[in-house]
Write a protein that binds this DNA or RNA. Structure first.
Lengths: 209, 209
DNA sequence: CAAAATTTTGACCGGTTGGACAAACGTTAG
DNA sequence: CTAACGTTTGTCCAACCGGTCAAAATTTTG
């Protein structure tokens, strides 16, 4: 009975949340090796030994954070459904992904950091759960192509391109803002991006005749 | 006289190259803070004090690497020219960027690491040189739009989308290969990507009537 | 060859980091 | 109140890390 989930007091639940929030901030900005327990502890407003009372090892924090992330991270793709107009479905998938880049940039950067370092801690998940999910959705997209609802292309690379273009606004945010400058790079940049991406994925760049 | 470029012996030139090559390997895989001088020294086949004879500080290696990177990194965009057919120009820019992701993935990851950490060491260059270059090219693209050669959109976000989609194949390579699997993820994946991106940027996804 | 200059090495140092631990402190239930 | 349990803190440690230094080994030059 009650095998996996350890019983927790009220304080433990609260403090663990506090630590995870602080760790997300620190890890996403400095990477795993670039972050110290002291930094996380300070950001969480407690001493290092106190933090280590709630998470025995630095890796445990990162692992917990990563597990939580993955669920919410794939939610938009999971929602991509066969019901409804294909073009509308894709458009709203892009919009959802872009909203995640806007609202959860730290999560995006945490994920990017992990992949950049070769995904040492989540490789099984990529080859298992993620691969399966993408295969499933690629099949749906192929169906749309066969039905003549969208142009024929490679569904896998289509998904990659949506990931790349949307996550770019979280992962490369510093560069985006630097290049756009103070005026163009304000809060409106996400709406500009949404408009551009919609047009790109719909009509491409060829001029209308 | 002879102000900036220090005179170097044959051995110094060779060994410095060796170190930079090793450092590119290590830094791009682990980030700056995640890499140790010992790792780089071992990868370069020498002892740590010996390495420090050629580069006095760890940061010097990273800085030298970064300076070299930036020149080659922006070369494809610099080549984007007003002469020739606009659609062809864009297509070959995309192709060149994708070839760089294929042939220089470590350079791409080094850059991505730097931006992810908030670009602490190259911020001035982003706000200066890069911003100016992009503004210049955005003006060229705007000209094409005014002339009706390509569809009207935001030139800045167009450039971002090209960067994002192409660099994705270097920075997220592990994920790409994991999702595509052994068969689809072989050497042919870059040609598949090239075909897909060409179609995306030309025609988008709307079905042809 | 021999002196001068360059390159390589081993030993060492101070600061940081992840983590252990016992003692002190606070809370809660009988 | 008090015993039991949960929480917090100060102290400490061993490993690691960036970097120094003097001496030894090697290469270059006259």
């Amino acid at each position: 009975m009650e095998g996996s989930a350890p019983r927790r007091t009220r304080i433990q639940q609260e403090k663990r949340e506090l630590i995870l929030e602080a760790a997300l901030e620190v890890f996403s900005a400095n990477g795993f090796r670039g972050s110290t327990i002291d930094q996380i502890a300070e950001a969480a407003g407690m001493s290092k030994p106190n933090l280590l009372y709630y998470f025995r090892r630095k890796e445990d924090i990162h692992e917990t954070l990563m597990q939580r992330l993955l669920d919410t991270w794939l939610a938009p793709l999971r929602e991509l459904d066969d019901i409804g107009d294909p073009m509308t479905e894709l458009r709203s998938y892009i919009r959802r992904k872009l909203e995640m880049a806007r609202d959860f940039p730290r999560e995006s950067r945490l994920f990017a950091n992990e992949i950049l370092q070769g995904a040492p801690r989540i490789m099984p998940m990529l080859e298992g759960e993620l691969k399966t999910l993408v295969e499933e959705k690629a099949a749906v997209i192929k169906g749309w192509m066969r039905a003549g609802k969208i142009a024929r292309t490679d569904p896998w690379h289509l998904i990659f391109s949506i990931w790349a273009t949307t996550q770019h606004y979280a992962d490369f945010d510093v560069q985006v803002r630097a290049v756009l400058g103070p005026d163009r790079g304000g809060d409106g940049r996400f709406e500009d991006a949404a408009r551009f991406l919609e047009q790109l994925f719909l009509d491409g760049l060829k001029p209308k005749v």
